[in-house]
Amino acid sequence: MHPEKIVFTYQGDGDLASIGAAEIIHAANRNENITVIFVNNAIYGMTGGQMAPTTLPNQVTTTTPLGREIITGAPIKMSEMIATMDHIAYVERCMAADGPSIMKTKRAIRKAFECQINQEGFSMVEVLSSCNIGWKMSPVDSLTYIKNTMTQTFPLGVFKERKHETNH
C-alpha cells in the first residue's frame, strides 16, 4: 500500500517455519521488497517451551520430553530453503552469542535494510538466539550452546549474496 515506506517483519521460528511457512515462502517468491528478521531459538518460547520445527535432534522440550526423534521431523533450514529462490536479494544466518557475533548480526541487518532501500527485493537475516528458560540452562551456558551446538545444525553464513541489482 505504501511502497515508499520501510517494511519489516520480526518473526520467530514457530511463526516463520511452521504456521507461517507457506506465507514466508510465497512472500519471498514474489520478491516482496521487505526485510525479514528471523529469530531462531529452536523452541516455542512464548507458549512455554514446546518443540519448534527448528528444534535440534534429541533436544528436550515440553512436547519432546525424551528428546526430539526423527519421526517428528528434522530441523527445517529456512535460510537454505529460501535461498533457493534465484531472484531474491539477500539471505544470511548470524548468531547472537557474544559481542563480535552480535556486531556481525547488526551489520547483516543493516545490509538487509540497505537492500530494501535500494529496491533490490526480499532480504532475510536469520539470527540464532537463546531461550535459556525454555532450554533450562543458565544464560551463559545457553550462549555456549548457540556457538557450539546450534551452529552444527544451522551453519552461519551468507546463503544469498547481495548483487546490488534493483529489482523493483
Partner: peptide
C-alpha cells in the same frame, strides 16, 4: 495479488486495511 491461500488473502486484507 493472487495469494497462496485464503488464509494468506484475508491476512493481506488485514495488512492493507490496517495501512489505510
Amino acid at each position: 495479488v493472487q495469494a497462496e491461500s485464503e488464509v494468506a488473502a484475508i491476512n493481506m486484507v488485514y495488512g492493507a486495511a490496517g495501512a489505510g
